[in-house]
Design a protein around this nucleic acid. Structure first.
Lengths: 142, 142
DNA sequence: CAAATATGCTTGACATATCAACTATTGCTC
DNA sequence: GAGCAATAGTTGATATGTCAAGCATATTTG
């Protein structure tokens, strides 16, 4: 339960930094994923899989981000079922700004922890996630 | 970011256990808070403060829980502005069942960690939350 | 190669969360 | 004790997330 409450607090803190830029935490994550995908782009559902969200949400999320001019969609000739999403220059410059402010905002919360403590924290969290990947049905079924 | 993803995974895992009982994670937390308040009950906004949610959400959340027969509302004569919420016997028996199944479901995820590691995890998470309580405006303003 | 199935995504109906404005009651001030 | 501000909670409009079903394209199978 402490884990959930702590995540809420952190989520809130980050949202506070994102809000003046007009995007949500989920949109921020989509931008980072798409930046990682470079020129190639990424199919819509692949984005949904990396976030912990389902398909319909993603479609409309990308709708809004396309309306904001942050991303672009393209239907490739190879497989005309899928829709490749690309990050636009506007999205890249927005991310560039946030790359400094978001970590700054979160670092405040971790100030009370030593480097070693943070390392241990990360290891523990990774262990929890991999336990879920191994045993939970919920993440496989999507 | 790992913290947020890990919390999502845990949230999902718990929701999976709660779903057959027809309640959400937030409703589960409300029930636990109200059980802690005993006979006295708790004003609506006090519940909202303990969760990380705002007033309007709470009102309608309690509406739904009242419709389910899990809680009861009462307007005390002392201060007729506030509305005291109480847990009903139906809510108590539901919680009694979940008191075993929810921890069981989450323990699976922590199986890879030693007792000492879990202790350190809890200490670190507490430190993050108290850093926020001290410095973040977001939690004070509500 | 026609029919059946699977994949990728979208749409509509509905539940839920969020923001701003409102009502009712209380406490404070002159 | 009349008027004003503070508190507790609700309501309405809007954004967002979620479930079930649908459409188009691709793949498999007889």
């Amino acid at each position: 339960m402490g884990l959930l409450r702590t995540a809420d607090v952190l989520r809130w803190r980050i949202a506070e930094v994102l809000e003046p830029e007009g995007i949500t935490l989920v949109q921020f994550n989509v931008l980072r994923i798409l930046r990682g995908a470079k020129e190639t782009g990424l199919p819509t559902l692949e984005i949904g899989a990396r976030l912990v969200e389902q398909s319909p949400g993603i479609t409309r999320l990308i709708d809004r981000m396309e309306a904001l001019g942050l991303v672009r969609r393209e239907r490739p000739r190879a497989d005309r079922r899928q829709v490749l999403c690309h990050i636009e220059s506007k999205g890249l410059s927005l991310l560039a700004r946030l790359d400094t402010t978001v970590p700054q905002a979160s670092e405040v919360l971790f100030a009370g922890l030593s480097g070693a403590e943070i390392d241990r924290l990360i290891v523990s969290l990774d262990a929890i996630r991999s336990a879920c990947a191994a045993r939970c049905s919920s993440l496989r079924k999507q």
